[in-house]
Amino acid sequence: METVHVKIADMAVAKNEGVLVTFGLGSCIGIALYDQNSKVGGLAHILLNDSSKFSRPSANTVNPAKFADTAVPHLIEKMLAAGARKNNIIAQLAGGASLFNFQNDSGNVGQKNIEAVRSILKEEKVKIESEDVGGNCGRTMRLFVDTGKVTITTVGKGAMKS
C-alpha cells in the first residue's frame, strides 16, 4: 500500500487505496477530505490562516497549500478532478496546537488557523466530521484512502528530570 508523505504547505490526493500522511502538525492544520462513494481522499498541511493578510506581490509566493483560504478550494478541485463529488466530501481536522509556552491563546497562530479552516469549510459547505485541534501537543495525521479512516498520533513527553 503506497504511503504519500504530505509535507508542510503541501497537499496530495489519492483514490481507492494508499495512505496520505503528514508528520508533526504543530500550529499548522492537517485537513483530510474524503468522499466515501468515489473513495477519493485528499490531505493538506496548511501553515497560516489567510493569504490576503500576508501576501505581497511576489514571485516567491505562489504555493496555494500554505494558507487555509487558498488550500481548501484547491484541494477540493483536485479531488473533483480525481472523481469526487462536492456534496459527498466530508472533512476531518487535526492540529492548531500551541507548542511553546507563554503563548497568548487568543492571538496565537494555531487558534487563528483553526478558525480560518472552520470558516472556509463552512463557506465551501463541507461538513466537519471530526476534529482533534488545539491543546499543546504536536500531531501526526494519517488518512487511509480505502476507508476514509483518519488516525492521529502524538509523542509521549517524558519529564525532563525524573
Binding site: A9, G26, F100
Partner: peptide
Amino acid sequence: IDMAGAVMGTVIAETKTVDD
C-alpha cells in the same frame, strides 16, 4: 518540547513568512 517537525512548522508559522 515536541516532535521536531511540529516544532519547526510552528517556528516557521510564527515568522509569518510568505515566501516559498
